[in-house]
Every structure is written in C-alpha cells, then in structure tokens.
Amino acid sequence: MNLAQFVRPVAIATALAVSTLAAQAIDITGAGATFPFPVYSKWADAYKKETGNGLNYQSIGSGAGIKQIQAKTVTFGATDAPLTVADLDKAGLVQWPMVMGAIVMVVNLEGVKSGELVLDGKTVADIYLGKIKTWDDAAIKKLNAKVNLPSAAITVVRRADGSGTTFNFTDYLAKTSPEWAKAPGSGAAVEWPVGVGAKGNEGVAGNVAQTKNSIGYVEYAYAKQNKLTYTALINKAGKTVQPTVATFQAAASNADWEKTPGYRVILTDQPGDASWPITAATFILMYKQPTDKALAAEALKFFAWSFEKGGKMAEDLDFIPMPAPVVKLIKTTWEKNIVTK
C-alpha cells in the first residue's frame, strides 16, 4: 500500500520526463573517423543550439566506425577510407563525402618552426621504412640546406589502430615511393616497419608533442590546435607547398565527384602547382534501409544543415566544404537510395 502510493507518482513523473525528452531532443549517433571529429563536433554544437537535437559522435577511428555501422549500433558511420562500390552494395550501404581536409607531417625539432622543414614523399617514405634513421641524413639535408638539423635519431610516430588517415597517408607514400608500394603498401592498417603506435589523431599529436626529435602525420586541425610544428611538402608538380586552405582547395578541385561511382575519390598526390599532396575527403556511411527510419531522417537533416550552414565553420578549422554542385548530387543520392519513410 505504502509502496504503491510512493511508486505511482514517481513512475508517472519518470514517464512524463522521458516522453517530453523524447519529444524535444533527439540524439543522432554516429561513430568513426577521428580525422573530421573537430568539424563534426563544431557542427553538432551549433546544430544543438539551433534545433535542440544533438549528435553523439564517437571518434573511434575509421575501421571501428565501419564495424559499428555494420553492427547497426549507430545511425551513421564515418570513414576516411572510402569503401568500394562492391562492398557498399554487399552491405546495403550508401556512401558520400562530407567534408575535405588535409594531412600534414608534424615534427618535434628544437629550433625548427612550422613550414621551415621541407620534405617530399620519397623522404617521408624512407623515414617510415626505417631507411632514414637520423635527422641529419643526407636526403633530408639535401632538401633543407638552411635548416639546422640535429644528428639525433628520428622517433617515428604512427597509428596503432585502423585509420582512414593512415589509409590516405600510406596511399600517398605508395604513390611517391615504389619501395613503399611494394612492402607495406597502402591501407587503413599496414605492417609498419618502424615506429611507435598511438591511438587516433589525438594520440599521434600527443606523442609528437611529447617526444623530442619525433615525426608523425595528423589531420591539419590537430596540428593547429596542439600548436605542433608542421612541415612543407613537395608536390607532384615539384613545387614546395605550405599547408593552407588555398593549397588544400587546389588539390580538392581536381576531384571528379560526378563520374566516380560511390564517390570513391582519393585526393592524394594530385597534379597542379599549388596542390597540397596529402589531401583527403572524409565519408559518411548509412544504410539504404535503416532500422530506425525516423532517426535516419534526423541524421540526414543534420547533414543537410551542415552542408548548408557549416561551410564557414569548416573553413575556420581549415577543412574544405564540399562544393555546391556536389552537395546537390549528394542530396539526390539520398533521395534515390535512403528509405526514411
């Protein structure tokens, strides 16, 4: 009797609270790439302020993101390593690019400022192959006559988890170094000949910041936020370029989204004098037949909003928004393929 008297109001209150919450705020869940996490979280913040709906994005790495969407524990997956059309069809997934960004080499060298050190694909590949062991190696000296390089051993930092950043980075190395293409090759997780493994872009950034004489590769926003020293790179045209929105955009302008099935465009080692050599798009994966259609519709609303209003925010973080014609194309892809009703 006493218990029932107590329980009933509590139950009613809880039910009310739950139902009002459900009516007001929807949490879209997604998981995957750490590369676009800075821009996704910024969008999510602004979106929450405007609509009250939140995005719960777990930045756990592209490999894990693909696994999560396949397990249907999230509404969308995010990956920097695009799936092949065959894989997409087999799993019943739709893929589209969300935003573009760039990967930069970061170093921790005393007295060396951002943009001072110049590297090219072959040199980076040799460092990651363990063939170049010290900073004063002839190959690095040749590219950097003016920089005072220590004779210290290079500590190579790379990813320990499956990663789309690694996919694009190793793709670049494979394109510029025949030896790299033969041995570790390109992929989301490769057999690293040397180096310490760190988890996520933030892990690599943290490790390079902590370790003297180290080198690593991270998405540009991570280098900027952690105030790491980035390097210039020599691109396919043989020009030395600095990582800026202009050079990222120059590389991105080469992409032919319309003619590529599944939007599977890889932007590394692009032609053009101003092109930044390790530029990459990051992708979203969703089911054609989502289990929770209402939630999928909400997710698409968020993506549409991001395309429409997120461009400026992305640029603030040195990401490159998708051009308007591509966004139109993506929207027709949604309409044609994703069942939300």
């Binding site: 790495g61 696994k67 320990a160 988890d161 499956g162 997780a189």
Partner: peptide
C-alpha cells in the same frame, strides 16, 4: 585493447 574495436 588497441585493436579489438576494429577487428573482424
């Protein structure tokens, strides 16, 4: 711990 999340 570091590989289980993306392994299959």
């Amino acid at each position: 711990a570091s590989e289980f999340a993306e392994a299959d």
